[in-house]
Design a protein around this nucleic acid. Structure first.
Lengths: 236, 236
DNA sequence: GTTTTGACCTGATTAAGGTCATAGTTTGAA
DNA sequence: TTCAAACTATGACCTTAATCAGGTCAAAAC
């Protein structure tokens, strides 16, 4: 984990305009800028590990991160994905808990580490920051509850379709307007869906036969989004 | 839904000493007391329905409530249970969303309705109330993420054992120190576990044969908590 | 007091999806 | 450029748990 003190200025960071820190006034922005640290992760590098103690939160400048719980048999369940301008590791920090999940970069990622003390200083002065945190939490909780009900009620095929749409919403398409702009292994997608890798592969190849998607190594092209949508049975 | 303006005073309410409103100063407590409404629900009565608009939050004075999502085929997935002093319906309110879940009393329940406007007034003056809300949200999110990983990775049998322990933690025992102090139908327990009613019944009767529990109509007695715990594989 | 209703339980069957084994591909490091 | 390691894919098999059907029981309604 390379750390590199302050080669970037938060005041110029486009993410800070939209992230949880968007409403900070100039003084506070400078504080944030002074006390943050820049971290660079290569693909596969660990950001933080489950059951360890948080010392701050991470704001993604550029890159992609998976947040996952490791279960009994060492199998990972991905509970969230993060993209540019997303904040990770804040739940455990706010709760004063150990991390319930681990986090790993799924591609080369640059992020800012904001120490706990800095965040607390900022929170003291900014009720708007509390509101932003609450917004993050309510969004995550909503998604989590949807996921619970899907896992309990939907068959794997529907969950795979839904996952493809979630990936689309989270990371968007490449320039061609069809290829998902994220690279995950089959195992990782399976861990997101909550199924066995083989089952996921089978269903992806079904989708391919049915003309819903096209596969080129790890790249997935969505050919018929509306049909994928109806396969996911999102509004029954 | 009977409403009954102000037969109770928040200042004397033992729950307000431990609930999310515990840190309010006297003025604010009076405001809360003046603007709240008392609601009484019989077993099975609806507190709020999925996809409707929230107008406030509910603080349980005495009783038990289930919070659930209704899926495709009308099957309920219970996502949370609430007990005395718990607050329900606050996520959607804070997020300015429609309710993602419905809520229904599982026994006779008395609760206070706190209108949105009152809550907003209180929030403006009390940063500690923001902190309390954040605490609630982080707790719920933690539980939700655990549930996601359990649903994806654990077999039904383990989840049933775990659910019995969750019920114990949430509602405790009756005077005998063994009987779960909550009455749920088999279907409701199944909706909590995320399985079919028949599967739940079979596993309960397995547990009975194995001497883990005793069943007397809807009452469930935990005979061997530590063996139930190991059956749940909580720390593998 | 009988009927009805609804919840609980059990057995048989089946479908979904997990596991195992193996072969083919891709990838990246030497 | 090559080769090993890691990932992807597919077939065969097996386990789990869902579904279906039928039966018991107790309480409520008539």
């Amino acid at each position: 984990m390379q750390t590199d003190s302050c080669s970037y200025n938060c005041n110029n960071c486009p993410n800070c305009r939209i992230s949880v820190f968007s409403d900070l006034k100039s003084d506070d922005m400078n504080l944030l800028n002074d006390e943050k640290t820049i971290i660079k992760l290569n693909k596969g590098q660990i950001l933080f590990q489950q059951d360890t103690r948080p010392h701050g939160l991470y704001c993604i400048k550029k890159g992609k991160v998976k947040v996952f719980k490791t279960g009994s048999e060492g199998k990972e369940q991905i509970v969230r994905l993060a993209n540019d301008a997303d904040v990770v590791g804040y739940r455990s920090l706010l709760a004063n808990d150990n991390y319930q999940c681990g986090a790993t970069a799924i591609e080369e990622t640059t992020l800012c580490f904001v120490p706990k003390e800095t965040l607390n200083k900022l929170l003291q002065e900014n009720i708007s920051l509390y509101k932003k945190m609450i917004t993050l939490l309510t969004e995550d909780l909503k998604e989590a509850e949807t996921k619970i009900s899907d896992l309990a009620q939907k068959p794997v095929r529907e969950r795979v379709a839904e996952t493809l749409l979630i990936l689309k919403d989270k990371y968007g398409f490449e320039a061609d307007g069809q290829t998902l702009n994220v690279v995950l292994s089959r195992e990782e997608i399976a861990n997101l869906v909550g199924t066995a890798t083989e089952s996921l592969i089978r269903i992806l190849s079904d989708f391919k036969k049915e003309g819903l998607i096209e596969l080129q190594n790890k790249k997935i092209k969505l050919l018929n989004t509306s049909k994928i949508f109806s396969t996911a049975h999102l509004y029954d």
